[in-house]
Write a protein that binds this DNA or RNA. Structure first.
Length: 848
RNA sequence: GCGGGCGUGAUGGAAUGGUAGACAUACCAGACUUAAAAUCUGUUGGGCGUAUGCCCGUGUGGGUUCGACUCCCACCGCCCGCACCA
């Protein structure tokens, strides 16, 4: 008997699928549609195990849906703009375009052997002019709809990548890509008006039942809704045009505990005062350059500069409070100014202690509590406390009640308004880079900023650029920026900024529904295919990409590029875990760690016998040398083995540890299935198909459990059931006919995970056509049950014995049998049970 | 600091409130073999016992329940996200 040869099988069946065109997706009203999408890859040049896991999961869903009669759309493309291409060009002198397209070709070639059920006819890269030209059209429509605007703003400047970053792209004060300390610069930039949709984006999170709660929560926190009071303190003897300081607070109930007002160094008042005050200028400069990293903030002292100015308390104009410029007040949030209440905020308490400011409690735990606090008193908002003076009758209130009462009181007395604020800021999309989608506008001396005409699109990137000096090559290109004004025809300059690459990935999922359309989208196609039914990707995109996409789906509805029925882009989201591996480490002469590749380590030793230290497990990374290359695995064992392994053992949302032993075992199992099926196929069909109840039962259980597992991302449990079924099949004494049936079902159940092997088995066992399009088997609940069932019998909740009873025996008969058992009789010792619980088909519990 | 999640054999992990440890790995033993590989079979939570069997066991302590890995409370540990957000 020949051995299981994955290489041969896999190439053959990929060809067969290709020729049959079964993964080509076209609208078909006779079948329910199903759009499954994995987050498309950045073309780095090499696929890794994370890709394999991600795409395999999507493929299992897609193939299962195809077999259950759905019209499946399962596309693939390339998130192809971005810095690495430019960095590569700078390092090696090539062109980002060549580098990117070569990488795409390489990665496509590496991906194809995986046998994914992808409609490759819909493939595109975001750097194709056909794609980014449509993105420019979309941009112009958004501009017209007021969803994009230009403003002068303090932005995050990445000094290494020499470009602006969105707030979401700054992590702990560092650029998300370069890791460089982000600087603050004032520039005129383009912004998407995402914050206008803050409330809608927040509210709609509740409708995303099939998203991980964790991701919804992260977005909720990011949007950061808060309700508070905005009001002003009157300023005494302020400079011209400054007669008040607006503040925002979420704890207006602490107003009577106010002891100072502090403004940000970037507040207009501070900036004004700075002009004539060298000390303040120096203080502010110090604050601005201070790092914004976590440690820096933790350690940074809360410092203030006393401006000498005072403000009047809104409820008692004779009550004067000092005005400070303080390093911890952010211009970006609220009004850039706060009032400090040391009694109920630890940071304010520290500040007040340092500068000798009064600490006045607005409320206390009890009427007779000591008002001299040694630290800030901050009870939960739901806990009733005693207010020293109340804005609403009752002096015993919870914080939440007092806040509402205070806002009502202030509004009634014209002191301020209750306002809702969001932490979410508008999305700055301008990037001073070459390898991105050009922003299609023109700067004209006479007309100002003018949108490019749609018939001029795409505004193509010039090919003749150099990367020998830092900065944006578009800026210094000799001719590219020179153009004429679309409005008046005079000489004008093109915008040289390009779009953030997150724009590209914010609408690609719609483009897949009509990838060659000469408008950004085709309404009919979008209407048919959208929304994405199942989206799969890494949790690292929980905020950026997913929030931007949710914004874009709404924006595209406004501009008419999506039907009004569309609301959310992704009905269901699954965030899969990473593929990890042990790290092998030795130390060099100086005690520094040296890492070793998995293939260089055998039984914990290097080839020369040196013992390596095994560091448990971590995400695969080049620097730690714990990367297992999927290509090597596919060559050694075949794609089906790689696919089977990444799905087994660990639940898909958790990390899975790649082990050589596990991969080996996966391959052995597939070879075993192949062997079992071959033997069955070669067996002479017996005239009388001897059935085997145990086999049939296991088969129907497998159908049920695998179907459920595949539908609910329980791939590991589905695979466990398949192992069990295989074991029963191998041992079955049934006639060849019955075994053939069972083996065919096994092949079908395995087909989403190991599609090539499944086709081979199907073919071997005489299945009709392709297994990929064969109807998915249906479990018969009646067949899953045994005629008799083993019931555990508990005495006082502890399992003592078991009984065999017919499946449908009435409760009282089961009870009688249970009571008659030796174990129960012994426990009763002649007495009567206090209680007997019989759960049919489950358990009997006797309480004595 | 705020928010969320997770703690089960040597290991990855199963388990609608109903036989804890499915399935796999690893280990051990056996069959086949001159031998090895491959394959097949069996054992494996801890303890006591010749044995029918008994006791303990899902991070710790308590609670609800006939019955708790599962629900509730407190604590311990680990992981993740956000964070000078007023």
């Amino acid at each position: 008997m020949p051995r299981y040869s994955a290489a041969e099988i896999e190439a053959n069946w990929q060809k067969a699928w290709d020729e049959a065109g079964i993964f080509r997706a076209e609208p078909d009203p006779s079948r329910p549609k199903y759009y499954v999408l994995e987050m498309f890859p950045y073309p780095s040049g090499r696929i890794h195990m994370g890709h394999v896991r991600n795409y395999t999961m999507g493929d299992v869903i897609a193939r299962h849906k195809l077999a259950t009669g759905h019209n499946v759309l399962h596309p693939m493309g390339w998130d192809a703009f971005g810095m690495p291409a430019e960095n590569a060009a700078m390092a090696s002198g090539g062109h980002p375009k060549d580098w990117t397209y070569q990488n795409i070709a390489d990665m496509r070639a590496q991906m194809k052997p995986l046998g994914l059920s992808i409609d490759w006819s819909r493939e595109f890269a975001t750097c194709d002019p056909e794609y980014y030209g449509q993105q420019q059209a979309l941009f112009l429509d958004m501009l017209e709809a007021g969803l994009v605007y230009r403003k002068n703003a303090v932005v995050n400047w990445d000094p290494v990548d020499m470009t602006v970053l969105a707030n979401e792209q700054v992590e702990n004060g560092k650029g998300w890509r370069s890791g460089a300390e982000v600087e603050r610069r004032e520039l005129t930039q383009w912004f998407f008006a995402i914050s206008d949709m803050a409330e809608e984006l927040l509210e709609a999170l509740d409708t995303l039942d099939d998203w991980p709660a964790k991701v919804r929560l992260m977005q909720e926190n990011w949007i950061g809704k808060s309700r508070g009071l905005q009001f002003a303190f009157g300023l005494n003897d302020g400079p011209e045009n400054f007669d008040r300081i607006e503040v925002y607070t979420t704890r207006p109930d602490t107003l009577l505990g106010a002891s100072f007002v502090a403004v940000s160094p970037d507040h207009p008042l501070a900036k004004y005062l700075e002009k004539d005050n060298v000390d303040l200028a120096a203080f502010s400069a110090e604050c601005r350059k201070g790092g914004t990293t976590e440690e820096a903030l933790e350690k940074a002292e809360k410092r203030g500069y006393d401006t000498g100015l005072t403000v009047r308390h809104p409820f008692d104009t004779s009550w004067e409070l000092p005005v400070y410029v303080a390093n911890f007040v952010l211009m970006e949030y609220g009004t850039g100014a706060i009032f400090g209440c040391p009694a109920h905020d630890q940071r304010d308490f520290d500040f007040a202690t340092k500068y000798g400011l009064p600490i006045i409690p607005a409320f206390l735990p009890a009427e007779d509590a000591d008002p001299h606090l040694t630290e800030a008193y901050v009870p939960p908002k739901t806990e009733p406390v005693h207010y020293v003076s109340s804005f609403a009758g009752d002096t015993w209130q919870t914080g939440a009640e007092a806040i509402d009462a205070t806002i009502d009181f202030c509004e009634a007395n014209g002191v301020g308004q209750g306002v809702t604020k969001y932490r979410l800021r508008d999305w700055g999309l301008s990037r001073q880079r070459y390898w991105g989608c050009p922003i299609p506008v023109v700067h004209c001396d006479a007309c100002g900023v003018v949108p490019e005409k749609k018939e001029h699109l795409p505004i193509r990137l010039p090919d003749d650029v150099t990367f020998d000096i830092p900065g944006n090559p578009l800026d210094r290109h000799p001719t590219w920026r020179h153009t004429s004004c679309p409005a008046c025809g005079a000489d004008a300059r093109r915008e040289t900024d390009t779009m953030d690459t997150f724009v590209d990935s914010s609408w690609y999922y719609v483009r897949f529904t009509a990838p060659r359309a000469d408008t950004p989208t085709e309404l009919a196609a979008a209407d048919y295919w959208m929304n994405v039914d199942q989206y799969i990707g890494g949790v690292e995109h929980a905020i950026l990409h997913l929030l931007y996409s949710r914004f874009f789906a709404r924006a595209m509805k406004v501009t008419g590029h999506l039907p009004s029925s569309a609301v959310e882009p992704f009905n269901a989201l699954f965030t899969q875990g990473m593929v990890t591996h042990e790290i092998y480490q030795t130390k060099d002469a100086k005690g520094r760690p040296v890492y070793h590749l998995p293939e260089d380590v055998t039984d914990g030793r290097l080839a020369d016998g040196t013992e390596v230290e095994i560091i448990p497990t971590a995400k695969m990374s080049k620097s730690k040398k714990n990367v297992v290359d999927p290509i090597g695995i596919i060559e050694a064992y075949g794609a089906d083995t790689a696919r089977w392994f990444v799905l087994s053992d660990s639940p898909p949302e958790r990390d899975v540890e790649w082990t050589a032993a596990g991969a080996e075992a996966a391959h052995k199992h597939l070879a075993r299935v192949w062997r079992i099926a071959s033997e069955i196929a070669e067996g002479v069909a017996s005239a009388s198909p001897d059935s085997d109840d145990a086999l049939l039962r296991e088969m129907h259980k497998a159908i049920h459990d695998v179907s459920t597992g595949v539908e609910s991302f329980g791939f590991n449990a589905a695979i466990a059931r398949l192992y069990a079924f295989t074991g029963v099949l191998a041992k079955s004494e049934a006639g060849t006919q019955a075994k053939r049936e069972a083996a065919r079902t096994l092949a079908q159940l395995m087909s989403p995970m190991t599609p090539h092997l499944a086709e081979e088995l199907w073919h071997m066992l005489g299945g009709e056509g392709l297994i990929a399009t064969a109807p998915w088997p249906v479990a018969d609940p009646a067949m899953m049950k045994d005629d008799t069932v083993t019931l555990p019998v508990q005495i006082n909740g502890k399992r003592r014995t078991e009984i065999q009873v017919p499946q449908d025996m009435p409760k009282d008969e089961v009870e009688a049998i249970a009571l008659a058992t030796e174990a129960v009789q012994r426990a009763l010792d002649g007495g009567q049970p206090k209680k007997v619980i019989v759960v049919p088909g489950r358990i009997v519990n006797v309480v004595v």
